[in-house]
């Protein structure tokens, strides 16, 4: 079994927000806990631990996953994006900017996951209909907003990104 990628604390490596990271973590440890405890990326939240709320959503190899349901061994070699990789205070990502302006974040606890779900949605479908926005975000529960201003935020990002594309400006998507 020596060729197997095992359990051990030998070291699991993946790329997080563009940076290669190696952690000595147990294989069954949740990706969520590794991000939060080992890498101190506490932007990713735990709301339920059972795949229901989406506050732990991150992107893994270009797909949206709930990090509470990913054993970290299965993230070996993966490319992971979390809210911390989205934008910076001086240069908010258009999605962050839109949520700020449109009232898409209230208490903010669902927000990191909501932002990642939005990033995923727009990566796959840059011009979603309202129905597609609803479906794309249905796994991310928000108890504060009633979702309306979240939908408005997503719609605003689309407009903003289109405008940027037209004027030739670029932003890391």
């Amino acid at each position: 079994m020596s060729e197997h990628l095992a359990n051990s604390s030998a070291g699991i490596s993946f790329i997080v927000n563009g940076e290669k990271r190696t952690v000595a973590a147990h294989g069954m440890k949740r990706l969520l806990d590794v991000l939060r405890e080992d890498l101190h990326l506490t932007g990713t939240k735990e709301g339920c631990g059972e795949g229901e709320c989406g506050s732990c959503s991150v992107r893994m190899n270009g797909e949206l996953v709930n990090s509470c349901l990913v054993p970290v061994l299965q993230a070996e070699g993966a490319t992971i994006e979390t809210v911390e990789g989205l934008g910076r205070a001086e240069a908010l990502h258009p999605i962050q900017k839109a949520f700020l302006e449109c009232g898409g974040a209230q208490c903010g606890i669902c927000t990191p996951g909501m932002l990642m779900a939005t990033a995923q949605l727009l990566a796959v479908n840059p011009h979603p209909t309202i129905g597609e926005i609803r479906e794309g975000l249905a796994g991310n529960l928000c108890r504060c907003t009633g979702f309306k201003r979240i939908f408005d935020s997503v719609a605003a990002v689309v407009v903003e990104m289109d405008a940027t594309a037209k004027t030739g400006g670029a932003h890391a998507g």
């Binding site: 939060r36 932007g43 939240k45 809210v83 205070a89 009232g103 606890i109």
Partner: peptide, 20 residues
């Protein structure tokens, strides 16, 4: 509609909730 006071922190994921 001024920006939410603690909005940027929340959007960057750097707002510190208890479990953080």
């Amino acid at each position: 509609a001024v920006p939410r006071k603690e909005g940027v922190d929340k959007l960057l994921g750097r707002a510190r909730y208890l479990d953080d």
